[in-house]
Write a protein that binds this DNA or RNA. Structure first.
Lengths: 251, 251
DNA sequence: CGCCAAGTTGAACAGTATCAAGAGAAGTGG
DNA sequence: CCACTTCTCTTGATACTGTTCAACTTGGCG
């Protein structure tokens, strides 16, 4: 059902060296020794299953989490019992950076499909980064990158229509999968239409309709959760497709 | 015209000790000596005036900026010459954290009114935080806080109607001004209606209309750029005011 | 086989954007 | 100091995107 499969603890351990934290540090001048120490901090938990929580809003903040395989969503429970999806996290991505400031989680994180997640004690990581300048730099980059990604989302939600949002969403997923060495044009959505809608600020029905429209225009092929991107340039053209109706004028 | 006035370089220097970076560090176990060193990094530039750029998208990243007095907007220039406002920055707030990751600015920053801005070389700051654990911790908190604020914005843009957006915006400004010791219920908007609209994902006309409606309901008093908040609880009630029409159901 | 959740499709409504026009401010130059 | 231009803001009328409500289809699973 999904291309992300847990193989074995040993392969997980190997895979973890590809985690963004370790991975991104390698070219930054870390000695093998440093990498070893960093790797020593990483705790390899048992695989989690659909519906499991990594943490809940309000939980005390202890660790960062890195998705090794599978997918995770973060969301903010809204007053009326609903929930607003804040992000989807694919293999190689870090979860929990927003909790450092308050030392408690401001969002909840739930596993979307069977996933291998590793955990890094933030306290220990902080101690390590304090004595390893290049690792500290890496942490700054990581945090800053997260800010940049949120900024892109703001742009998306601020001034784009439903088609541009879906197109951006699909291309964004595609890009992140490619970075991870997975097919950028053929993948499974582990999240529901409802969750996509929540993430993009659209109603479920709109998500469904727009996907159908994309398929009718031969830009994608949809079969339930299986997505194939057929026409990248057309999708990219839609992304820029400006404001809610036409576009916004100068400020 | 504005309550933010540049007085003198000396008072600026004193004021700078209230900058968030220094300020937030004080309770975190920095020795007076550390504070002194941090303070030494801070460069006090000449006052900037409306329309001046702090930096432009694409500029090489060198420094972080802290608003001492005045106001700054950050924005992403869009292809057709328009611009999407990403944030407004009031006294005590830091600008440029999103640029660390790529070492170049992904947004532009423009001064909205005569402002005193100080500058911190990021390279030097990084060196200092590498040898001062509590300062490193402070930097992590700062970056994480920025992520948290963006997250709030995502919530706002994702599922709120025009009234909720404006109400949240006003209350958010109010809160930030209060934190700074300024009046939380009586202030000037240094940004145009258009800029507010761009920030909130609304048309200028909608901003204008909703403000008028708020005034008609005696929740605020508006006179051009001068705003008085009259009924906080009513505004707060509007903030929760759910989805685009009613509210969103469970995921 | 039948139930239940998830997804799709259709029709009507509603919130905002857009278009258009006018009223103030503010800034410019004589 | 006063026209004149220009920009910002406001207000009204209309159009359109996307939500809402509702019914139906599909797939999963006991």
């Amino acid at each position: 059902m999904s291309q992300f499969q847990v193989i074995s603890l040993e392969s997980m351990r190997i895979a973890c060296r590809n985690c963004s934290l370790v991975n991104l540090c390698l070219p930054m001048g870390l000695t093998p020794d440093d990498v070893e120490r960093l790797d020593g901090l990483i705790k390899h938990n048992h695989p989690l299953h659909r519906g499991d929580y990594l943490f809940r809003r309000g939980d005390h903040f202890r660790s960062l989490y890195i998705v090794k395989t599978g997918a995770v969503k973060t969301f903010a429970p809204s007053p009326e019992g609903g929930e607003q999806v804040l992000g989807f996290h694919l293999p190689g991505e870090i979860i929990g950076l927003d909790a450092i400031a308050r030392a408690c989680h401001i969002s909840s994180a739930k596993v979307l499909e069977t996933s291998a997640i590793c955990e890094i004690s933030f306290a220990k990581l902080e101690t390590l980064t304090a004595i390893t300048a290049s690792l500290q730099h890496q942490m700054y980059r990581l945090l800053s990158q997260e800010i940049g990604q949120n900024t892109e989302m703001l742009l998306l939600l601020g001034r784009k229509n439903a088609e541009a949002r879906l197109a951006s969403f699909l291309l964004n997923l595609s890009q992140r999968l490619r970075r991870r060495g997975l097919s950028p044009s053929d993948f499974y959505l582990s999240m529901s239409r409802h969750e996509i809608g929540s993430y993009l600020g659209l109603a479920v029905e709109t998500v469904s309709r727009v996907l159908t429209r994309f398929q009718d225009d031969n830009m994608i092929r949809v079969d339930r959760k299986h997505i194939e991107l057929l026409n990248f340039s057309a999708l990219m053209a839609l992304c820029d497709g400006g404001g809610q109706h036409r576009q916004q004028q100068r400020t």
